[in-house]
């Protein structure tokens, strides 16, 4: 485990209820227990040079009835290019709402929209929460939640007639 750089320690001081740990070199995961604070955290990160979002992923945890929202954030600034921050937070099934970060990082636009259609996580403040990759008449179900089952086949078959 490498030492945690200064900017991360500063974030830890400024925002409560977050856990920061380093996974391997140059990968830090920030776990935010209060999703309402995500915008403040994002602004802090942006001020310390993290200027783009690589991905926004949803993760489904059906047992705990919650959905994880994972932002991967990186920087094009010299010296920080190799750092990828994993910003994790959770929303519940009952209220899958979180603030959109496109006002801070417009590069999250595509991925937030996709996460909305796949998991039903509503990003407050996103300008176009419509279906994206799915067909226009796809309705009601969120395909990447674990409750959406797809058929799998076995590997043994009987000889056909």
């Amino acid at each position: 485990m490498s030492s945690v750089p200064d900017f991360i320690q500063e974030i830890q001081r400024k925002i409560n209820n977050i856990q920061i740990k380093a996974d391997g070199t140059n990968r830090y995961s920030i776990e935010l227990t209060e999703p309402s604070k995500i915008k403040d955290l994002a602004k802090l990160l942006q001020n310390s040079g993290f200027d783009h979002v690589i991905s926004v992923s949803g993760v489904d945890y059906p047992e705990q009835e919650k959905l994880g929202v994972v932002y991967h954030i990186s920087s094009y600034e010299e010296g920080k290019m190799n750092i990828v921050l994993t910003l994790k937070t959770y929303v519940t099934y009952k209220e899958p709402v979180i603030d959109s970060l496109i006002s801070i990082w417009p590069s999250a636009w595509t991925a937030e929209r996709e996460t909305f259609e796949d998991y039903g996580i509503i990003f407050k403040g996103h300008d176009e929460l419509r279906l994206f990759f799915l067909p226009e008449d796809f309705d009601g179900v969120y395909p990447l939640r674990k409750s959406f089952k797809i058929k799998t086949e076995g590997i043994f078959v009987d000889r056909r007639g």
């Binding site: 200027d51 783009h52 979002v53 094009y76 990082w105 417009p106 590069s107 999250a108 595509t110």
Partner: peptide, 8 residues
Amino acid sequence: KENAIRWG
């Protein structure tokens, strides 16, 4: 450059 970073 700014737009390239902003838009990703």
